[in-house]
């Protein structure tokens, strides 16, 4: 076992995601207390990998890794951590990390903590704060054993602390990538043809609280009166009440409008990822314990329909 911290970074179209830098910064903080190295791990080609503030960067490239492939990436990461035995392996709790972190845990028999939003060292042991139940609960857990896997929520740590210029060491895949059952077919690009919610100054954003497709009209009317556009949380889109282009959040779009007026959105971590830096956030929700009230600037425990209708009369 070493005291190294491995950060599994992520990149798409040549660009690393912020969470990669965030984790490298956190890894440096942990290794400065623990000893050991903060190691950035880059899997796949097409991105300049000498941009981390890590103590070392390992870059594994192979033709089979040119696009994200959960099976191939999982095998490479498994082989690497088995060979190098780091004390901690950090993933982003992202579309990529979510496919691999728990899988690696089951493969290696090492513990995994998901939804992490903070890590610290107490008496030389790792303590992880994990945000569960849609953000309504924080669990504090102590993982046991000589190697731990932690999957971190994006936006938990500072990006700048992980930016640097450490030269990467290129290595060949530590495992043969033959006979894979998973094949990348093609990239999927966003559907166009709708308003771009990321370019709007004002958004009226609706959540599951809107209740039905028919009620979306009320939000449309309110938005029109405010010169705003209607956006939403994921369940509204999954139910088919609005097109995918209107979805804000982790698997949707990141927005930063002047006004984000939220009607019936609880404020799950996945939604917050897309809007928490909006300039003015106002949330209307019937649940006084809705996590959104810890993030919004103004809030009201009230029925969205009553509030929206009363606002329409005043505008």
């Amino acid at each position: 076992m070493s005291n190294d911290v491995f950060v599994i970074t992520e990149h798409m179209d040549g660009k690393f995601s912020d969470v990669s830098f965030e984790m490298v910064g956190k890894a440096k903080e942990l290794t400065s207390a623990w000893g050991g190295q903060a190691v950035a791990v880059v899997v796949g080609g097409g991105a300049a990998s000498n941009i981390f503030a890590s103590d070392a960067t390992i870059h594994v490239d192979d033709a089979a890794l040119s696009q994200f492939n959960p099976e191939a990436y999982g095998k490479v990461i498994e082989a690497l951590v088995k060979e190098k035995s780091p004390r901690l392996v950090m993933f982003g709790w992202t579309a990529m990390g979510m496919d691999i972190a728990a899988w690696l845990s089951a493969r290696t028999g090492k513990p995994c903590v998901a939804y992490a939003r903070d890590l610290c060292i107490e008496n030389n042991a790792l303590i992880v704060n994990s945000q569960v139940y849609g953000g309504k609960m924080i669990a504090e857990v102590a993982p046991e054993g000589d190697m731990v896997i932690v999957a971190c929520l994006a936006g938990s740590f500072a990006v700048e602390a992980g930016q640097g210029s450490t030269a990467a060491t290129q290595i060949a895949s530590p495992v043969a990538l033959v006979g894979l059952k998973t094949k990348f077919v093609e990239a999927i690009k966003p559907a166009g043809g709708d308003v771009d919610i990321t370019a709007q100054a004002k958004l009226v954003s609706i959540g599951r609280g809107i209740g039905s497709k028919d009620n979306v009209e009320l939000a449309e009317e309110l938005a029109q009166k405010l010169g705003a556009t209607v956006s939403s949380s994921r369940p509204v889109v999954d139910a088919g009440w609005l097109p995918r282009t209107r979805q804000v959040g982790k698997s949707g779009l990141k927005v930063k409008p002047k006004l984000y007026l939220m009607l019936g959105i609880s404020g799950a971590p996945e939604h917050l990822e897309g809007m928490k830096s909006a300039e003015l956030i106002i949330a209307v929700n019937t649940d006084k314990k809705a996590p959104i009230f810890n993030v919004a600037h103004y809030g009201a425990t009230a029925d969205l329909f009553e509030v929206a209708e009363a606002m329409l009369e005043l505008l």
Partner: peptide
């Protein structure tokens, strides 16, 4: 799905 409408198709 990745994010923002980006994604990938796989055959398994």
């Amino acid at each position: 799905e990745f994010a923002g409408g980006f994604g990938a198709k796989y055959s398994v």
